[in-house]
Each structure stands twice: as C-alpha cells, then as structure tokens.
Design a protein around this nucleic acid. Sequence first.
DNA 1: TACTAAATTGTAATAATATCAAATTAGAAA
DNA 2: TTTCTAATTTGATATTATTACAATTTAGTA
Lengths: 143, 143
Amino acid sequence: MYEKYVKTLKDHSIKITSQRLEILKYLNEHHTHPNVEEIYSELKKKHPSLSRTTVYNSLEILKKNKIVQSLTISGSELRYDIEESLHHHFLCKKCGAILDISITCPNMDRTLDGGHRVEEVQGYFKGICKNCQTTEKGRRTNG
Amino acid sequence: MYEKYVKTLKDHSIKITSQRLEILKYLNEHHTHPNVEEIYSELKKKHPSLSRTTVYNSLEILKKNKIVQSLTISGSELRYDIEESLHHHFLCKKCGAILDISITCPNMDRTLDGGHRVEEVQGYFKGICKNCQTTEKGRRTNG
DNA sequence: TACTAAATTGTAATAATATCAAATTAGAAA
DNA sequence: TTTCTAATTTGATATTATTACAATTTAGTA
C-alpha cells in the first residue's frame, strides 16, 4: 500500500513518518493541484491528530527534495503537485481547475539572455478550459 | 511630465487621479517588478497622504485594463510590471532580482490539449543570474 | 459652480504562512 | 529488544499580504 512512498522517502534519506506517507499518497491519488488547506482537511478526516504545520513542513521537505513542486498559478496560495516529467499548467478562469499541459518549452535547460543559468521553468497558461467552453455554448451547468 | 500617463488612463476611460498617475510613473521608471509595499513606501515619501489601499485599488483597476500585469513568480506576494510586448520573467534565486526575458513562447494564442482556449501565458524561469554567477566565481560581493 | 458617482483613506478583518516551545517518535546504537 | 537522541509533530501564537468597509474627499459632468 505505502511501499512506493516509503521507497521514495528512503531514496532521499528522508525520515519515514505516517504523515509524510499520507501526504504523498494524497498527492499521488489527486492530481488536482490541491492547496495546503485541501490536503490538511482531507487527511484530517482519517487522522484527526494531524497538524496544519506538519502539512506545511512535510511539503517543504518534499519540495526541497524535488519530490513535489509548488505552483503559484492561482495567485493567492501555493498549489502542490507530484514532480513527474516536466509539464506545464493551465488555469481555467471560469471553473478554477488547474490542468497539466504536456507541451515542452524549447527554452528549458538553457542559458537565457546571454548568461542567466536556468534551473527551473514553469509555464502558466490561463484561459477557459475545454469543458467550460462547452458549457458556455450549450448553456449546460457544470454540476 | 505626466501627459503620457494621463493619455493612458483617458484611453481606457479610467478616472485620472494623482495617485494613479504616480503609480504608473513609478512602474514606468522602475522595471524591477516591485511589490505593493515597495510602490507604497516609495510614493509615500513624496505623497504622505497616500494609502496602501489606494495602491491595491489602483493596481487592480490598471490590471483589469491590461495596463499593468501582476506576477506570482516570487511566491509570496504579487509583483507588478507595466504591460508592454509579451515577455517572460527570470527570478534569480540568489539575489532575488526579477528580470525580463525576451523569448517568445510558441504556445501562445493557441488551443492547448485539444480545446483549452489560452488567453494569457506567463513563463517563469528560475536560476542564477549572470551577475551572481560572476560573483560566485570571482568571490566578489554584490554590494 | 454645484452635484454625484467614484476614488481615497484608515481601520479592522481575513487568509496564508512562519515561528516556536513542548511532547512525541523514528531509527541508530547498545 | 531496549535505550537514546535528534528530528518530527503538534498547537498556539505571530507575521505578512490582501480584502472589506465606512467615512471623507474629489474628478469630471451638468
């Protein structure tokens, strides 16, 4: 059940705690780019002793180890994502969904403007998602 | 002195106030992507009656009119930038500078993943800027 | 010049995140 | 397996960025 998350933590020499395993599992099963509050309140249901600070701390150490990444696309709070292959993100201005976008940026791994060393690239696209466009046209509700 | 900013506001049918003119002027003369606090405290020096709320409000209306744009690249607060030609941004992890990057993204003005309508694109590059690399090697201080 | 809707101001509220000290626990060492 | 200690978790409190709001002021029209 948790073997793969145990392995991930071990591989990075991070102490294995149930809180960290639960957070990793949650992110792995919910690719919706949740914020801290969502992760906290969801996990709190099954693990009432969980503290919000632990969620912040855990995400921080996972981020330092490049196991997760944080996104600032929403503008008001950090959103979290399991780090997999490089991908970018699309924010729907209507429904708020954050979607993974599988394009590659030709400027990754390069030196910019004659000397700036690039270590990370985040591409944020904003607009109206496919589903919301359909809703607009067809006057259907989103549920 | 302020004619160009007056024109900008008039062109967008935004009421002309000295506060808005000062903010526009500040952004036009400081392409450092300042946050609200920087803009506020700088302008407050010459205009002691200025309120922080006014800075927030003004930036908001300027943003709605696409005269300025806000960046979330720093992660903790919004940074502001005069909207000019499309460009992207580089954040130096060492000195914190945010620099304009003049590459064009081939995915702008397109439909992504078979249907998401793209209206805005922000490319965030993070790493070590040219200047900080020199400092590293040469062991010079940044001043 | 007078009027009114909109903008400015300052205070207070909210939301996200950071700090910190006390209690708990993972995992190394005995 | 038990003991020990450094690291982690917890919860309370602090801080920071931003928003809400009511009273005052002002831009721009009539």
